[in-house]
Design a protein around this nucleic acid. Structure first.
Length: 569
DNA sequence: GCCGTTTTCGGCCCGACTGTTTTCAGTCG
């Protein structure tokens, strides 16, 4: 319901913008965002206290609250339907084309009755558009290119998988003549799960040199813009990249400006205005006088705010706590001491127990938990009770060969359809740590799935629930689950919930992590490594934890292995 | 249409680049 209402409000914004109406579109856009970021269904807010409760959501006033009420009661919003009747175009379809905004969409509809991407493609190929006022040959070419780009399904990458290429790109830029500093801002610095654009900031004495290099690197598909302060390209790896050259005295301002998401930035700039300043990518100004700009810290400080980590900058409450100097000390990237989900060649991992232990030690870890799959996961050659016991003996043997790292005994036990486990309790009790996870029957009702996982949580041997919602980015949605009920069950039984750090899992998601932290339930951050090279993915689990405002105290494997074990049930 | 330590009326984030113009509208981030 939230998603539908949010989408309708957003489309109303575009439709109003088409008509040239000022400011209202912003209001609807804001309201759309407000609804999208609610953690509770809007109808349950409405049920509590009707219109009044809706109006307490920032960005929702009387009129939009009434429209939401109308949608809850009838499933429609009249104003939307009548706007849509006048301009019946597929807004989602058309506005996803780069370079195409509300005004041009309206022109295209009026001129050629274009409603979908397909209509546009036809008219573009006919060559009729180029003679219309406001359009030309170049516009035609750009739109065709943008449509082609969309069709190729490029445009977003899983951050953890793309990071090596991103870092190597940054290193290349650092080696260009005249370049003094290169940093990445935007969604990469915020450690978002997936990224579409790279925002690169550069200090350079020779802007021409870096821009020439940037726009002519091998593998570039298209140059979107080239100037002395900003250039933009489509990279071959399916991402867009923006590069800006910034003077040193403005570097902090630029970093601030291009790191926060749109909503964070708007909110911060409003605070600046209230204090009589102007904030842009060059600095914080009082009239024409530069007040701050070299570092992010001084900008936030002048605004009466505490500096906050990039991962928090999404306008979901961080502004308020920064104004009150209550920014939490988030878990740091070097604070993990162990990894509690590691697969080996006993099941579907690539490398042996010893190889995994050695690789983990090399990355600085002090302990790992071996968690191979169990028998009902036949495709991975999952272990039964007997084989688990055999593996435990093997671990004792290998432990003597790798004295620098503690190898703990565990398993990734399969949670069956009814919530029972596929290994008997007697064997589970012998393991140091037991993780349990769902690997089958994903399409249950929310009620059934919640009951299933809660039953596993109640097993006295189950210490951690691995990848609790089962999603795989860009491939599979999370299964339906009542996260509040699961957190409650975990709290009652002292069960730990995992943040699976594998780049396309990142499961739990940030919003759920915040709920877990608020409930006082403990988390673990695990790589889910299936090969010796996978321990590096822990970084993205930590990023995820930081986006969920978790501190080191909330994460059990920031402790020594002895203290970690004491956190378990 | 929303909001309030400038305000219940009168504001609303800001700048770069492109393409189509001949001074600027539209789009993007």
């Amino acid at each position: 319901m939230n998603e539908e209402i949010s989408k309708i409000l957003y489309e109303i914004a575009i439709l109003l913008e088409m008509k040239g109406i000022e400011f209202k579109p912003r209001a609807y856009e804001k309201a759309s965002q407000a609804i999208a970021s609610l953690s509770e269904p809007v109808e349950s807010i409405y049920k509590k206290d009707g219109l009044k409760a809706l109006m307490e959501i920032p960005g929702i006033g009387e009129r939009i609250a009434q429209k939401i009420e109308q949608y809850i009661k009838t499933g429609h919003i009249k104003e939307y339907e009548s706007l849509k009747k006048k301009i019946p175009v597929d807004l989602e379809d058309l506005s996803s084309i780069e370079g195409l905004g509300p005004k041009k969409i309206l022109k295209l509809y009026k001129l050629f009755n274009i409603k979908h991407r397909k209509d546009l493609e036809r008219v573009l190929k006919s060559g009729k558009l180029r003679n219309q006022p406001g359009f030309g040959l170049k516009t035609e070419e750009n739109m065709l290119q943008a449509i082609k780009f969309l069709k190729s399904d490029q445009g977003r990458a899983v951050l953890g998988f793309a990071m090596p290429s991103i870092r190597s790109l940054l290193d290349k830029l650092r080696s260009v003549d005249g370049v003094e500093r290169v940093e990445i801002a935007g969604s990469v610095r915020r450690m978002q799960e997936t990224v579409g654009d790279l925002d690169i900031l550069v200090i350079s004495k020779k802007p021409e040199a870096i821009m020439d290099f940037f726009t002519s690197m091998p593998g570039i598909i298209k140059v979107d813009a080239k100037g002395l302060t900003r250039s933009a390209v489509h990279l071959g790896i399916g991402l867009n990249a923006d590069l800006r050259v910034v003077p040193p005295e403005s570097f902090g301002a630029a970093l601030q400006y291009f790191t926060g998401d749109k909503y964070h930035n708007v909110a911060v700039r409003q605070i600046a205005i209230k204090k009589g300043y102007k904030l842009n990518e060059y600095g914080l100004y009082k009239g024409k006088r530069l007040i701050a700009g070299g570092t992010e810290e001084e900008i936030y400080q002048k605004l009466g705010m505490q500096w906050m980590p990039p991962e928090m900058r999404t306008n979901t409450g961080e502004i308020e706590i920064a104004l009150n100097e209550k920014v939490p000390q988030l878990i740091d990237y070097d604070e993990l001491k162990g990894d509690l989900q590691v697969q080996t060649d006993w099941t579907d991992g690539q490398d042996s127990i010893k190889e995994m232990a050695e690789a983990a030690e090399k990355t600085g870890l002090k302990y790992i938990l071996i968690t191979d799959h169990t028998k009902s996961l036949a495709m991975t050659g999952g272990s039964d009770e007997k084989r688990l016991l055999k593996q435990m003996a093997e671990i004792d043997k290998i432990q003597k060969q790798v004295p620098g790292i503690k190898i703990l005994k565990g398993a990734e036990v399969n949670i069956m359809k009814d919530g029972s486990l596929d290994i008997n309790d007697e064997t589970l009790a012998k393991l140091d740590v037991v993780g349990a996870a769902v690997h089958s029957f994903f399409h249950m009702t929310e009620k059934e799935m919640t009951k299933r996982i809660s039953r596993a949580i109640e097993n006295p041997n189950v210490d951690i629930i691995f990848h609790p919602t089962g999603r795989v980015l860009q491939r599979r949605d999370a299964y339906k689950i009542d996260i509040d009920a699961v957190i409650k069950a975990a709290k009652k039984t002292k069960t730990v919930l995992e943040i699976d750090a594998y780049p396309d899992r990142l499961d739990l998601k940030d919003e759920y992590i915040r709920k877990v932290v608020n409930a006082g339930v403990k988390l673990s951050i695990d790589s889910d490594a299936h090969a010796a090279g996978h321990f590096k993915y822990l970084e993205f689990g930590i990023g995820q934890a930081r986006r969920g405002w978790a501190t080191a105290r909330d994460i059990i494997n920031t402790r020594s292995w002895q203290d970690m074990l004491k956190c378990l049930k």
